[in-house]
Amino acid sequence: MSQVMRPGKRFIVSSVSSDAHMWNLVFLQLLLEEHGAEVNNLGACVPDELIIDECLSTRPDALILSTVNGHGHLDGLRLIRKIRSEPALEDLRVVIGGKLGVRGAENIVYAEELALNGFDAVFEAGSGIERFEEFLGALESGPSRARPALAPVGAAA
């Protein structure tokens, strides 16, 4: 059984710069709110700078990125490199999920590179929401904590 997330967490939910899909964002917001969290949903087609500014000014417990248009392996990689080069965001919890490439079931090939570049977890579509809920349950209270050298990577189903 996975741990249950402590209430009162604050999250930023966002798409990436080129992705307009919203239903994924609406879904994640509802899911997190049902877990007692407060969600700042930045919506679709969000420029990198806006995401970084929001993270710097509001210091969420985690940044949850979702993208399904197939450009996630490009937009997500560029974004996480920028985030990790921001000293104040080095330890921010950041995860990405959705359909990360245009290769269907083979999109899982992108997960490792994304994780190596600084994502704490990667959830390719079809890997099930349970693993995400485990991630939420494992979030510690208080400020950041050091990230493990190589974070666990979600396997596709």
Partner: peptide, 16 residues
């Protein structure tokens, strides 16, 4: 058309 062209990020499209 691809998503970069849709949001006028033609540089990213060229890079790809």
């Amino acid at each position: 058309l691809d998503s970069y062209t849709r949001v006028n990020d033609h540089d990213s499209a060229r890079a790809a």
